[in-house]
Design a protein around this nucleic acid. Structure first.
Lengths: 360, 360
DNA sequence: CAGGGAGACCAAAACGTTTTGGGCACAGCG
DNA sequence: CGCTGTGCCCAAAACGTTTTGGTCTCCCTG
């Protein structure tokens, strides 16, 4: 090493900065520019060791001026990190209504990507199919699993390999109590949306639930039943089978003798299904039937709402993604992040406004 | 076998196997197990140098047995690669109808991810906003840009920094002729879908185009006009403004005196807009108006099609993604990939079946 | 039997950082 | 004046590979 440094000075070998034109500037260049050792430069920039404030500042300035950015690969070599976080999306890509969740995933991963990049991590989408074992080939420091299902194979794999994990939505299998989790505040949210329906004039509120074995579905259903108890009405829950057209489930619910005059759907597809079913049965929205749905917050409004703009309980998918990344990085840094809860908000639109005309 | 135990002796260092318990198995472990040098092991596994076939096999076996996987980070240090490919998604996330393209992006990136992982690369989603400069913080070997627009800032940035790029859809600005490109075979596809409409009984076929300044839109429009010339009809093109509800554009087209009896829409949202517009005008589909659209192939059918199942020119987004990755890796490996063209297929559904269910 | 060449293997450098274990000078204390 | 900190800095090791530039042995040729 020193012989190499000496060679640079004494033998007239071109200094690094003069070699290849587009060469990356390295820590050595900064050291050379300041006349310090690379150790001192590293310490100055990372805030470690004892460095005179003036020196530290001098190094900072030189580094900025030279446009020095430490090579993440080299840094990873010594730290043992890759700087890559995995995000499992589409682990239910084979389910019929998978595209329903795309807006949610899109917003979630947009938020996660931003948060990761800001902290100098990169986010990779991991092939969801656990059977392929493909995911193990991507070198990652940790993983984010969205909506783990019952007996989630990915979750089990990660636990076995000791890979740090954060989940969006609580794992429902036992044994994962220590996995940090980020969730929407469904407790507050469900109360708010159901309360809104009641206040808007609903006498009997139904729930169009889903077949997915995840905490989100479970919790919504539980909270709904809980609300029914306090609101003094009998619960009315319908769930489409996995392969069933949700319109069928909606028809079942709406053609029952004790049909509800308001229904909350657990995703937007169910909202559309309710609209279609209502039209087939000759029910007007929101006149005969009020409809509300869950929705990823930043979904472009209007895209699927030409029929009737849907009142929604809006989940802040972007923020959920960002919080997952933050929690995962905390884990990697040795901190123990608590579970975090993200608020969701009721957005009132035409489908629950009886007073005004709903169609444009 | 044990005839060369002295290899470790000379270094005097504790053998790797005696260090940390759960340690990753490295190339040194394989060298130790086989009694060879790490050089030989590396060469044997990578197929370089001159290695006796028997030795090579012995190394392979030992490596497999020990579960050796070379550390991609260390490998990256020497090769100067990170093993990361960037994918720019949502660079038009701020456009009103961005969500229209989500199914396409989702399928595209699924295909790209698979292709990348299979070749031991990782695909990271890059924050689309070029202004933030955030994308430059992710260390990447190359980038895939989907649908570059006019004066695409990302494309310009990459060119400036000498970052290898492959685009999905040809760049329309001059000066990027050398950028490898992957495209759908729109020439064949547009001819097929327009031909289908004509054969299905359409007398006058219109095109609901888009405001996006990309090659896809340009080419579709050009091919449509070309087809009109050979089909002996006057072109009839309508384009919604960027901020305009496409239903307005559809209404303009359908309420004109010389209204078409078939319209092809450049994306699914436009298809829905046409349906809505037709209903408002009292036109039946496919009776008074046939509708066809462009669509990402593996979009879950039925999701947005409760109204009328739409005949589509189905773009193989998965494959397009995979081909982009293949092309980019070729570039990184020093090969010069040609531009590749992916076929697209006509999928006939209800919106263009006037008489009876035809063959399919 | 010298010389050449090829086949099989290896030690050490290199990649660009961070981390470890000091070294040196100067001040304060006894 | 010696001894101990302490503030500031540095050389070298380490991270796990690939690549470079060999060495050694054997066989063939003349």
């Amino acid at each position: 090493m020193s012989s190499r440094e000496d060679a640079t000075r004494t033998t007239g070998r071109a200094p690094a900065s003069a070699r290849g034109a587009g060469r990356r500037v390295g820590i050595r260049d900064v050291a050379e520019a300041t006349g310090l050792s690379i150790t001192t430069v590293s310490h100055a920039l990372r805030g470690k060791g004892q460095i005179a404030p003036a020196t530290r500042e001098r190094v900072r300035r030189a580094a900025a001026e030279l446009g020095y950015r430490p090579d993440p690969v080299a840094r990873g070599l010594v730290s043992g990190r890759t700087g890559i976080l995995g995000l499992v999306v589409g682990h239910m890509a084979d389910l019929p209504w998978a595209s329903t969740y795309r807006p949610y995933y899109a917003a979630f991963s947009a938020g996660a990507t931003m948060a990761a990049v800001e902290r100098d991590y990169a986010l990779v989408a991991v092939p969801g199919d656990p059977a392929s074992g493909l995911w193990a080939r991507v070198p990652m420091d940790g993983m984010i699993i969205v909506d783990p299902v019952r007996e989630d194979p990915l979750l089990a794999d990660c636990a076995r390999r000791g890979m740090p994990v954060v989940t969006d939505g609580r794992p429902i299998d036992p044994g994962y109590e220590d996995v940090p989790t980020v969730e929407s505040d469904l407790e507050q949210g469900m109360a708010a949306i159901l309360g809104h329906l009641r206040e808007a004039g609903a006498a009997r509120v139904g729930l169009l639930s889903g077949p997915e074995p995840d905490a989100y579905t479970q919790d919504c259903e539980r909270l709904y039943r809980q609300w029914c108890a306090t609101a003094g009405q009998a619960p009315l829950v319908e769930t489409p089978a996995v392969t069933e057209d949700p319109v069928e489930a909606a028809l079942r619910m709406l053609s029952a003798p004790d049909r509800p005059d308001a229904v909350h759907g657990l995703n937007e597809t169910y909202g559309q299904a309710l609209i279609v079913a209502a039209r087939r049965l000759g029910l007007t929205v929101p006149g005969d039937l009020m409809i509300s749905v869950m929705r990823a917050s930043d979904q472009a409004a209007g895209t699927t709402d030409w029929e009737v703009p849907l009142t929604a309980l809006s989940l802040d998918a972007r923020r959920l993604g960002a919080e997952c990344v933050a929690a995962l990085i905390d884990v990697l840094d040795g901190k123990e992040p608590g579970n975090s809860v993200v608020p969701c908000t009721v957005v009132v639109r035409g489908s629950t406004r009886r007073a005004e005309p709903s169609t444009r």
